[in-house]
Structure formats: structure tokens, C-alpha cells
Nucleic acid binder design. Structure first.
Lengths: 215, 215, 215, 215
DNA sequence: CATGAATGAGAATTCATTCAT
DNA sequence: CATGAATGAATTCTCATTCAT
């Protein structure tokens, strides 16, 4: 499908000067605002520049095209959220089941908290999905999940590990995304998150014995 | 977000003559082709008309706007697939667990079979999602699922039934869609489908006792 | 200005058959409706035909183009109104001043009664104004006015008669049209009509002595 | 009638650089040319841009739509002419009757001088008439006329002043417009102007005693 | 660094009109 | 007579992007 001409996602220069940083930040903020409030169809280079109060030519000084800006934003949020998850997962004091529960809940919460923005990002990201940069981003998430699975489920064949990682990843993310697209929220959302984690815990025999802290 | 102006999805005239039917068909085929092969961003009225070999004005004689054409296609496939599911579900000979398994498998297969097209349709449908026509389509699917749940899980409170219907619906569709977006296929896809159905069966205690045929 | 390509205003055939008459009538009615309710910018051949419930090709069977239809309508109303005026003017029992007063009042009333339609017709008629057919229509009105002037003001040079006819004609019609464009109505409209007639009567010394009936 | 969608008449950016000013000027000139020589039906954004030798996208960089351009032109001429009238009216040395005569004559001359353009503007302005901007323009003219009336006719009730202002305004402008639409010119035009002013002077008892200059 | 200005290409939609049946 | 179908040519407006200053 959609042999969307592959675009260069690498920022042109990431301005070191003070002025430059301010400009980039203004652009990113404006873009985020537009995606969230006006939706992906209003996410155009000109509108972003105007909202940011910078000249359109400046936009193209920092981003080779609007997809690069989009990627920049996607990457920022990913990096931020990945950080959160990592912390979560590394809390070895809790047992794996507890950690799975809080992982799922956290995922749901993150999605729900910025439903508009995240939905817009997802829709807009269609044009970006098969770039190597985007895939690399996804891979980073997978690695994290894999580590967690290993620890929670114990040793298993490489193939199984692969499968399980992918399965659980897809299961949680796809559900969370879709349900927040539908603007599920509040009690129902929590009930869904709980049910989903229990299903996973049961299916994969994720244990309730807390890992010992590494000395 | 994205207050997509609501558009009229009702076809303009229905074409009684042979020639008209051919034209509409050409348009629909061209649209399907473009969505599948070129992706949603190439899905424009002009391109569709050109590919179909009809004048753009003819396009607008049959569809008030391109969203109406999109909806026409979405509805066709839905109607078609819904029919399949209904059959599947109505096969009372099998026990509910079996039927759940085949429901999930079927869903996965349908998605996988036309991954490109279906992904494109999903992306393009963003512009259509909050029309009453589209919602009506979705509602039809929900009703079917609900009936199945009642039968498989036995009586339950209205609230629970609601929740379960939504949960299982989201679970299966979101997973199937996302995994075919990733072009999972073959053995892995089947393994995923199986695992997903087993999870659902276990979680919801879907029975293995065949319903008695109604006399 | 506006070298608006001169168009043929002659109806193609004025169908003698029953069916034909009904068709033409439907078209005319639909056109009138559209001009009045939707305004001149909605006055298109296709819309008229659709509203009339006849095929667009039928439209072109009776009118060579939409201007011809427009002219047909304009002419109808003119003929109708001209008839009224003629009656009015011919009522020799009243004195000329009275007749002038009632002429003006009548003109204002006609305009006001169908303000929407008449305004639309005026705007649409721009495309038609410099056809000989349209001019002929106007000329007919001028002749009538001239006759009235002769009688009311007594004999005068051809040049003066010409000038006066034109002057009074313009004065009354332009004022009436413009004030109804502004949707003046009710008491104010009547006051305007009265004031206008008094001005004319005074300026042109239009007498108060009733003409004797021709024996 | 004609619920003409209300459009934004505010110019987009004002162009500080020399180049921009030249562009805007080219657009305005081209528009004026087209309106005058080709008529309102040729007044399209594309044709204007083409005639101006600028890209259509540039057109839309300076005007949000063609109505805004139209309004820009209308406003320019109004501002210009209003200035003239104000001067005229403020010449307190002459007595009111004289000033009325010259007011009417001036009005007729202005209309006649650019008959083609002004007729085209009037026709095109139909789409603009019920915007607040356009009304504000008209209101400015009314204020001026009212001041003049007060001075020429002396004190009167608010209602009468209102009525008289409106009446005289309509009378003069509608007549002048219509007669130049008919391309009356030269001696006949002057004769009409004179006759019209005499009628007004007589009807409204506009005095011949010069106002004393304010000390 | 930043801005003002410009533009090729294309999207959505409409209109008057014709032709074959 | 009437209709179903079709279309060339416009029209309005937007978008991503570049270039000169």
C-alpha cells in the first residue's frame, strides 16, 4: 500500500544558539497545539509556522519537511514515556504481576490523558510509519518489553520470547489506543485495564513472587 | 480535536441504466484500487475519476463528495463480512468456545486477506467516523456480538453485558487490525489468533457445551 | 463593459401539446421559486430542472439557454404589470394628478409585494440587458409613459416629451427598485411614494382637471 | 432571498516590502480593469491573478477571497468620493440650494465618469451588501447627508430628519446610478441633474440664504 | 538566523450544455 | 417528447516548498 514517498526525518540543524532553540521550541509547541486542538488535517507547515509566530522559511531551516517535525514530536513523547515505563518496570520490589498491572494501567492513563493529541499523532504518523527512524523507535519499546517478559516469565526459547513480546505489546497498545480513540474514560477505562492485565497475567503465568533485589 | 465538517454520505442517484451502473462500478473499483495500492493520501476525487476513466463531473453525479464514496465502499465490505460472521455465529451446532475460536480466526483472516485495502480504509475513515451513518454500521456489529455473548456466557446484568460486549469487541478488532497493519501473517498470525481466543474463552468462561438445537 | 456574449433569447418551441405546456410551466415555476427563495446565484439550469422535476435535456428542448428562461419570466411579469398600468392610466375619469399618484403607488406596491423575486430578477437580468429583446420590452413601457405624459402635461416639443418621459420613468422606477431593495415597507414606503408623486406633480405641473371622457 | 454566505472582508497581510505593494497594486489594477472592461461575470480570482501576472496563491496571500478584493476597491473609491463630497458640503460660503445643486451634479459626474466600472462594482457588490463592513461604509455616507440636511432645512423632528435623509439619499443615488447605467451623458445628463436638484430644493424648501461663516 | 514574498501543483466542486436512446 | 448519462471547462482555495534579502 501507500508507497508514501519516504521522507527525510532528520532535523536539519538543531540550532545551538539561544534564538534557534526558542524558534524550534515555538514550532514544536505550535504543532502540538494544532494537532491536539485542530486535528491532523490542520497540521500543515504554514499553519504551524503561523501559530508559532515564525516565518515559514524558518520552519524549513530546522525541519526538512513537516514529517520531520512530526517525527520529532513523536520521538519526544516516546522518549518521555519510555522513561516512565522503564522506571516502572525496574521497580523490582514489586512482583511481576503487580508490575504488569501497573504497566497496563500506566499505558492506559497516558493514552487517556492526552487522547486528542495522541489520536492525532497516530493518524498523522501514517505517513511516517515505514521509515527506518520510526521503526527504530518502536524497536526500543520492544526491547524494554522483552526484558520485562524474560524476567516475569522466566527463560524461554528465542522464538517464544519474540512471539510473546510482540503479542503482549500489540495487545496492550492496540487496546489502549482504540479504547481511548472511543474516548472511554473513568471507571470503565480502569475496569478494562484491570481485566486486560488479569487476562495477560493468567495466560502467561506471570508470577506473584517478588524478585529479589540484586544485591 | 479535528472537528471534521460533517458531510452528506447519501449517494446522489442510483443509476438505472446499464451504462450508469458500469460507471459507478468503475468509480468504486478505481477507488478500491487506489486505496489499496496508492494509499489513502492518493484517494482524491480527481484521481479516482481519472483512474476510473470517467469525467470528474460524472463522479459528482453519483457521489456528493468523496466521503460518500468511501462510505459506500466501507459499507459494502461491512455488509459482506457481517453476513459471514452472522452465519458463523448462528452455527449452533458447535459449542460457544469453538465458535469464539472461529470468530476470531475469521476476523483475523478477513483483515489479513486484504491488509492493504483494509488499512487504507481504516485510515481514510477517520473523516467519516462521527457521522450517524457510520455509527449505525458499527452498532450493527455490536448487536451481533452482544447476541453471541449472551448465548456464550449466559444471563448477566445489562451493565456487565454492555461492558463485556465492548471489551471483547475492542479486544478482537483492535488486535486484528493492528497486527495486520504490521503485516503479521501466516503461522504467527494464526498463533496470535489462537492465543487471543483462548484468553477470551478462559477469562469469560465461555463454555464447551454445545447449545442444543432449538427444536 | 461586460461584453456579455449575446445570447439567443427566443424560446425554441412553445410546445403546443399538453405535455409540453406542463413541462414549460413546471420549469417556469421552479425558476421563479429558486430566484425568489434561493437568489440569483442558485439560478442554474440544472437546479431549475431538478426543482421542476424535469430532465435537464427537456429544459434545453424549450429554452436555448438559461438566459432565455430568465427573459421569458421577465417578459411575463412585465406584460402582466404593463397591463395593470395601462388600465390605471386609461381611467380617464380621474384627473392626471390622481392618476400619477396612483401610478407611483402601484409601482411601489408591485415592487414591494415581491421584493425578493424582483430583486433577484433585476440582478440576474444584468446578463440580458443589452439584447434587443430586452430593450424592446423596456420600450413598450416607455411608450405608455409617453402617452400619459402627453395627456397630463399637454403638448410639448418632441425633445421635451422625450426627456420628460425618460426622466419621470427613471425617477419612479429607480427609486421604487432601490427602496424595495432596502426592504423599506409599510408606512415609510407609502410616505416615500406620496412624496415622490407630489414632487413630480409639482415639477411638471400635472393638472387636477379631469379629462373629459372621449365621447 | 439569496442567503449569500458571509465572507471575511479583512485583508490578510498588508505587505511592507516594495515588492508586496507592487503585487497588491497589480492585483487591484487588474481587478479594476476586468470589472470595467469585461464585466462582473469575468471577475474571478483566477482571471484577476492572471491579468495581474501573479500566481493565484499570491492572490490569496493578500486577500482571503475575491469579495475582500472587491470590498477593497469599493472602499477605496468611496473614501475618495466621500472626501470630495465633504469638501463640497463644507463650502459654507454658498447657500444650501447652491450646494445641493453642486452635490447632485457632482454625484452624477462621478457616476458618469466611470460608468462601466461603477456599474460593474454595483452589480458585483450584491455579494457583499450585507456584511457589516459594507454597511459601515454606507452609514458614513448617510451621516454626511444628514448633516447637510440639518443645515439646509433647519431643525426638525428626529423622525423627519431620518426620513428626509433616507429619501433624498435614495432619490439622488438611485437616479444617478440608473441613468448612468443607461449611459445617459452630456447635455441630457446635466439637464437631468439640474431638474432633480430643483425638485428637491422646491420640495424641501432648501434655502438660498448663505449661512454665515463661523467666525 | 530570520523574514518577506512568491509559486507550481493540485484538491474539491459546479455549470452549461450535448448526445444517444 | 422525454430521459439517462456524460463531460469540458471553470472556479475557489490550499499546500509544501524555495529564494532573495
Amino acid at each position: 500500500m501507500a508507497v508514501a514517498r519516504k521522507r527525510n526525518l532528520v532535523p536539519k540543524k538543531l540550532g545551538k544558539q539561544q534564538r534557534a532553540k526558542a524558534t524550534v521550541e515555538a514550532i514544536v509547541e505550535a504543532a502540538t497545539y494544532i494537532l491536539e486542538k485542530k486535528g491532523p488535517s490542520s497540521f500543515t507547515a504554514n499553519k504551524v509556522a503561523e501559530k508559532a509566530g515564525v516565518n515559514i522559511a524558518s520552519f524549513y531551516q530546522y525541519f526538512p519537511n513537516k514529517e520531520a517535525l512530526l517525527f520529532h514530536i513523536v520521538k519526544s513523547t516516546w522518549d518521555h514515556n519510555l522513561g516512565k515505563f522503564e522506571q516502572n518496570i525496574k521497580l523490582r520490589v514489586e512482583n511481576p504481576a503487580q508490575r504488569m498491572r501497573s504497566l497496563v494501567r500506566e499505558f492506559f492513563m497516558i493514552e487517556a490523558a492526552e487522547a486528542d493529541l495522541r489520536q492525532a499523532l497516530r493518524i498523522a504518523s501514517v505517513d511516517i510509519k515505514d521509515t527506518k527512524e520510526y521503526r527504530a523507535l518502536m524497536a526500543a519499546g520492544a526491547v524494554m518489553m522483552r526484558d520485562f517478559i524474560v524476567e516475569a516469565m522466566g527463560p524461554q526459547s528465542a522464538a517464544d520470547l519474540d512471539f510473546n513480546t510482540r503479542f503482549i505489546g500489540l495487545l496492550i497498545t492496540s487496546f489502549a489506543e482504540r479504547t481511548t480513540d472511543e474516548r472511554t474514560s473513568g471507571a470503565e477505562l480502569i475496569r478494562q485495564a484491570n481485566m486486560l492485565s488479569e487476562m495477560v497475567i493468567a495466560q502467561f503465568g506471570i508470577g506473584t513472587k517478588a524478585n529479589k533485589r540484586r544485591p
